[in-house]
């Protein structure tokens, strides 16, 4: 795990953000939903900018996914 990534909750209202993410993909088929999720990652990643942070996030996301 990397020290570059924040571990505590960064959202003021986590449940509201989670709901917004789910609403963003509701009513879509799997392929459309995947594209929306990819766009979200690109937009948020661009906002972060720092490639080291993005690399750290990729490492965590891959390592904690089974299979």
């Amino acid at each position: 795990m990397s020290d570059l990534l924040r571990k505590d909750l960064g959202f003021a209202d986590g449940d509201a953000v989670y709901e917004a993410l789910i609403n963003a993909i509701s009513g879509l088929d799997d392929q459309q939903a995947m594209k929306v999720m990819a766009k979200l990652i690109l937009l948020l990643g661009n906002q972060i900018g720092d490639p080291a942070v993005i690399e750290a996030a990729i490492t965590v996301a891959r390592s904690e996914t089974d299979g």
């Binding site: 795990m1 909750l9 986590g14 789910i22 509701s26 939903a33 904690e64």
Partner: peptide, 28 residues
């Protein structure tokens, strides 16, 4: 979860919850 994508969000949150406190706060 109502579809595969929201299921992916849900399971991702659960998988992160052990090591990442922020994800624990999102588990509902």
């Amino acid at each position: 979860p109502k579809n595969a994508a929201s299921r992916a969000f849900r399971d991702a949150t659960l998988e992160l919850a052990t090591d990442w406190p922020f994800a624990r706060d999102l588990v509902n």
